[in-house]
């Protein structure tokens, strides 16, 4: 059980470090590709973080089990056991949704990156911005 707590704490710290690094990367890196990669790290970190919350530390005491109730209809003791030991499934549902959304977003961003490279010949965010052709109505 102690090992479990230690493992969770280590994961949590690692996640926070990850968030800091990813945020730093998003806002300071010059390369747009690296910005997108940092973003990817950031969103994956959040997913793991949500899963971690599903474990309901410190209320779940030991040996978490999947949220599936096998003995139907179980005794009261079974149900109590189920309630204290199972992992909360709702964060997983959240994360599935978030992952699907992120898939769409990252494929869109990847497409944009390709277009960007086609237009500017680099992925640097600080390219010289040209004066736009005076054509305001489109």
């Amino acid at each position: 059980m102690d090992m479990l707590i230690v493992a969770f704490t280590t994961t949590a710290i690692a996640l926070i470090v990850n968030i800091v690094i990813a945020t730093y990367g998003i806002f300071t890196d010059r390369s747009l590709l690296k910005k997108v990669i940092s973003l990817l790290i950031f969103s994956d970190t959040l997913s793991v973080f949500a899963i971690l919350i599903g474990f309901r530390i410190p209320k779940v005491v030991s040996s978490p089990s999947p949220p599936i109730h096998l003995d139907i209809p179980g005794t009261v003791k079974d149900i109590e056991e189920f309630l204290t030991r199972t992992v909360d499934p709702i964060p997983q549902a959240f994360i599935i949704t978030a992952i699907v959304i992120n898939l769409a977003i990252f494929s869109f961003l990847a497409g944009l990156l390709l277009q960007y490279y086609k237009h500017f010949g680099s992925l640097d965010v600080h390219v010289l911005e040209e004066e736009e052709v005076v054509d305001e109505v489109y």
Partner: peptide
């Protein structure tokens, strides 16, 4: 090309910021 550039800046910053919304949703939950 300027539209692509604006979109990338908006897209990356927007997605990053919206991720904080997800983080706060998780925290609140």
């Amino acid at each position: 090309r300027n539209a692509i550039r604006a979109t990338l800046i908006y897209g990356i910053a927007g997605t990053a910021i919206t991720s904080f919304l997800l983080l706060s949703v998780i925290l609140v939950y």
